[in-house]
Design a protein around this nucleic acid. Structure first.
Length: 340
DNA sequence: AAGCCGGGGCA
DNA sequence: TGCCCAGGCTT
């Protein structure tokens, strides 16, 4: 692998930094997304909420969650004051539940340390739970129009194709190369529109499949388009096969409802209410089965009807009242099927 | 550096 | 089915 400077030189031979920024900004103004719910006010709290929701989650999925969130938690203070169960319930179905706890903790941090105002300073932002390198840049650019680099999946794919880069996008060791390029190409002014333009290009033109190269403002300079190798980029390391695991759950149901147990904060489905999980398979005929695919393994679950010994940790919820609880999606689906 | 953490959309 | 997504945290 060559040095970082080598690849910056290579990139500059494709397009100079000021030309690139100018074209991204001009294209964004005409063709970009400028009416997303979190773009209407450039409100730092709205930006914070949207960025945590958008981590590994597509825009169209996030929009209804974002709107519901602002109705229930209109500002930093109201979120900081909210009970954790309310926070988890509103996040239910969005996945990566640690983000919900992070966002809740972020609001409390901002209230405690920054008088409820989200800071612009990168070092201070980086200390906020759930805010990593990407989100620091995103908040600085989108909330404050700062000159801040961002690197996400869109930016990696765009750069990899534009410059025919050999970097493996699913290997963290290549991240420093992408960040060096992103910082080289980030302009001193119009940081907000430039960052938005990168994301919009990645989401609507330089898409993972079926890239719309005919509509791309860089089609005349893009190295992989000129070489007719666009679909060869970005390069990716082979993924390991996902293992299958077995899960065992207890269904304690009576006229009053179903017994639920709150999961631990360090497990899958952290802090969500769920059927009590058993250490091993139970005796007798199962009540039913369900399967669920996580990002790193596949779960084959079996459910048995059991009467569990009383415990203060349990909570019994009526079948008709399941919507008021933060439940994992596959558990909710299973219980709804019982209901019919 | 590698593993962990969901769910939806789409070919 | 497999891949992708406005990644971050933990070990």
């Amino acid at each position: 692998m060559q040095s970082i400077d080598f690849y910056i030189q290579k990139a500059c031979s494709v397009v100079a930094a000021d030309d690139f920024a100018k074209q991204v900004i001009q294209w964004q103004q005409v063709h970009g997304r400028n009416n997303l719910p979190w773009q209407t006010e450039n409100n730092p709290y709205h930006v914070l909420v949207s960025e945590l929701m958008l981590q590994q989650t597509q825009v169209q999925t996030v929009i209804p969650y974002f709107n519901r969130w602002l109705e229930r938690f209109p500002d930093v203070q109201s979120l900081a004051d909210a009970p954790e169960d309310d926070v988890m319930q509103l996040w239910q179905g969005l996945g990566y539940y640690r983000r919900a706890r992070n966002l809740h903790a972020a609001a409390m941090t901002v209230v405690e340390h920054y008088q409820g105002k989200i800071p612009e300073n990168a070092d201070q932002l980086r200390e906020i739970p759930g805010v990593g390198p990407y989100t620091v840049g995103a908040i600085r650019a989108f909330a404050f129009d700062a000159s801040a680099a961002i690197v996400d999946g869109n930016v990696k794919r765009l750069f990899a194709r534009l410059f025919s880069l050999p970097f493996l996008v699913n290997k963290s060791s290549f991240d420093r190369y992408f960040w060096a390029l992103a910082e080289h190409y980030t302009p001193q002014s119009n940081g907000r529109r430039f960052a938005q333009g990168l994301l919009d290009l990645g989401a609507t033109i330089c898409k993972p499949t079926q890239p719309q190269c005919g509509d791309c403002p860089f089609r005349l300079t893009c190295r992989s388009y000129q070489d007719n190798t666009v679909t060869d980029f970005p390069k990716r390391a082979e993924k390991k096969a996902t293992p299958t695991r077995s899960g065992y759950f207890a269904l304690d149901i009576n006229d009053a409802g179903i017994l639920l147990l709150k999961r631990g904060s360090d497990s899958v489905w952290p802090n969500l209410w769920c059927l009590p999980e058993l250490e091993a398979a139970a005796q007798g005929t199962p009540d039913g089965h369900f399967k669920h695919t996580f990002s790193h393994y596949k779960l084959h679950a079996t459910v048995w009807r059991q009467t569990l010994a009383p415990s203060q940790h349990y909570r019994r919820v009526a079948l008709t009242d399941l919507d008021s609880v933060g439940l994992p999606a596959p558990i909710r689906t299973y219980l709804q099927q019982i209901n019919t």
